[in-house]
Simulated assay, not measured.
Amino acid sequence: MTSALTDRIGQLIAPSLESMGYEIVRIRYTGGARPVLQIMAERMSDGGMEVEDCETVSHAVSALLDVEDPVSEAYSLEVSSPGIDRPLTRRKDFERYAGHDARVELHQPIDGRKRFKGLLTGLDGDAVKMELNGVRPEDAAVTLPLDDIADAKLVLTDRLIEASLKESKAREKARRKTEETE
């Protein structure tokens, strides 16, 4: 049911968020004493997401969900950025972060293994290519079907932090330049 619910929520909110310049990275709904609906999003223009963006998305999503009411019980809404060690949920995430370390978990095992950690090296058709850590060199290269990926996330490394800081500085520079021309 959770997958059907998050799919429904995605269908409800994606068009509005896209028209506002945002893209959904992931939607998760967790039950419990106080269920939580987590919306992870980023700006389509540059992949950034500031506190103000989270607030804007939160207000829009709240209004849409109040009208459509897809969740029958009380819940908390959390809107966030993907963060530095972000989840990889879309084809373009695997392309964009090739050259960085990631953890990938599959729905079905390949050669008895469901969890993989290593360097993303790109895509090959509908599969993610990785160089695994801590295995024999002849076993290091793997190809994992995109459709079989249950969960994938970047691993926090110095290289990832450096790349993230570089992107953040470039976004800030572009923002200041835009403000100066207005």
Rank of each mutant, 00 (worst) to 15 (best):
A98M: 09
D93T: 07
A141T: 07
P87L: 03
S80P: 15
D85L: 09
D85F: 08
R90F: 02
A140N: 08
Y75N: 09
A74C: 09
Y75W: 09
G125I: 01
L119Q: 13
R86P: 10
A140D: 08
G122M: 03
D124Q: 08
L120E: 13
D101F: 09
I110L: 12
E105K: 04
P109S: 00
T121Q: 03
T143N: 01
T121S: 11
P109F: 08
K117F: 13
L120Q: 08
G122R: 03
A74W: 12
P137F: 04
P87G: 06
A140I: 01
R91Q: 15
L132A: 02
M130P: 12
P109Y: 02
H107R: 03
T143A: 02
S81P: 09
E105L: 03
R86T: 06
H100L: 13
G118W: 06
R90H: 08
A127Y: 10
R91F: 15
P137T: 01
D124A: 14
H107K: 00
G134Q: 00
D93L: 04
G118T: 10
A141M: 06
A127V: 04
S80Y: 15
D85A: 10
D139M: 10
R103P: 09
G99T: 12
S81C: 10
A98H: 12
G122L: 04
E131V: 06
D85Q: 07
N133A: 07
K117D: 15
L77T: 13
R86I: 01
S81A: 05
P145A: 01
G99N: 14
L119T: 10
G83T: 11
Y75H: 06
P82L: 06
L132W: 07
G83Y: 05
A141V: 07
G112I: 09
I110M: 10
G112T: 07
R86M: 00
L77N: 13
D93A: 06
S80Q: 09
D85W: 06
L88V: 02
D126W: 11
V135K: 03
H107F: 11
L132K: 07
R90K: 10
K129S: 11
T121D: 05
